[in-house]
Amino acid sequence: MYSSQLLKGTFQTIILKVLSEHKRMYGYEITQKVKALSNNEIVVTEGSLYPILHKMDEMGWVTAERVTIGNRTRRYYSLTRSGSNSLKLKIDEFERFVNTMKDIFNPSPA
């Protein structure tokens, strides 16, 4: 499992990415999905997930939809157009970041 220090800046990208591959997801589902995809290496805690979801809702990257499930209401989140644009930028940025990191760790002979 990676340290939370390391993961902090990537949660947003991870959540956006997971959402982009599904029509709509609810919070619990997202945490489970991330866990499965990362082989239990990355755990998005509730404490990180929900503030991020609500913030993205606020920014218009995701929209929430209320559905009654049994005796409670479930909020399904789905990606908006501006959300998928942001995701592209984020992935681009992250790939550049990884490349830069590689450059730093394996400097090519000058």
Binding site: Y26, G27, Y28, Y50, R66, R72, T73, R75
Partner: peptide, 14 residues
């Protein structure tokens, strides 16, 4: 309320 709904659903599922 929205957060309460999220967390309620989350815990209930759990």
């Amino acid at each position: 309320p929205p957060l309460k709904e999220d967390l309620l659903d989350h815990i209930c599922t759990e």
